[in-house]
Amino acid sequence: MWRDTVRTSNDGVVSIHSLRGVPVEVHERGSGAIVVFVHGEDGLLFSGPLIAGIAHGASVRSIVLPGWGHEPWPAHITGVDDLAIVLLDYLVSLPGPVVLVGVSLGAWVVAEALVRGAANVRAAVLVAPVGIKVRGRTDRDYLDLYAAPAGEIARAMHASTPVVDRTMLAAVEFDELARAQHATTRYVWKPYFHDPKLRRRLDRVLVPVSIIYGATDRFVYDADEFYTAYANAFVPPARVVRVADAAHRVDEECPRAIIDEIQRLVAEGLA
């Protein structure tokens, strides 16, 4: 395993790690207790304010999963289980127990890593996690991003107008978004946004878990019911934080709620 620092900027240090031959970009920012951040469907495109907020009191390591970013995407990385193993490989390279944070698809990756016995994790925060199925065979748990009109998707994801105006993205950001959607599609297509075995495995998780979700999240069929079911699959149940003014993209709409939860967990770890 090696790492190679490729650049530094005001946003921190970017390095490329080789994790059992898989090249993975990691962005490091801030200092203090280590928080590992796992992005969602859009990669790190809209996560800047959240990461900056976490970095005020911690050393944030944001991992760019294979398929996102610019590193080559190895052909054998085909499923969310592969992403979980990449994350596990990264975690064992870190000193001391960390707080692990994942957003949406990233939270699914975190959950898959946790059920495989993640080392070096003190606590986990799952923000609007996906990855489990609660309903029956004719009822999707997640809005069909490949069939719903754009307006319906926008309303599912955001409680109000997105902080970042999508119409104002630069060409390179549309490139990044296209790559992110390509990668997401590769991983979530079928079964759609879930692993049928995950829900029954969550009771294997031995570290404290918090679930943060937006009250008006319409990407899942019923936010309160769905995330309660998710939380109750852990033993003991995950702590639940319901954010009133957010939909599925809690990380964009209310980063403060996530930062507060992380800071609480970091403080508990230091105590």
Partner: peptide, 12 residues
């Protein structure tokens, strides 16, 4: 839909 064509063609 994402994936039907390469990201570089789909971005614009």
């Amino acid at each position: 839909p994402p994936g039907y064509q390469p990201p570089a063609l789909r971005a614009p």
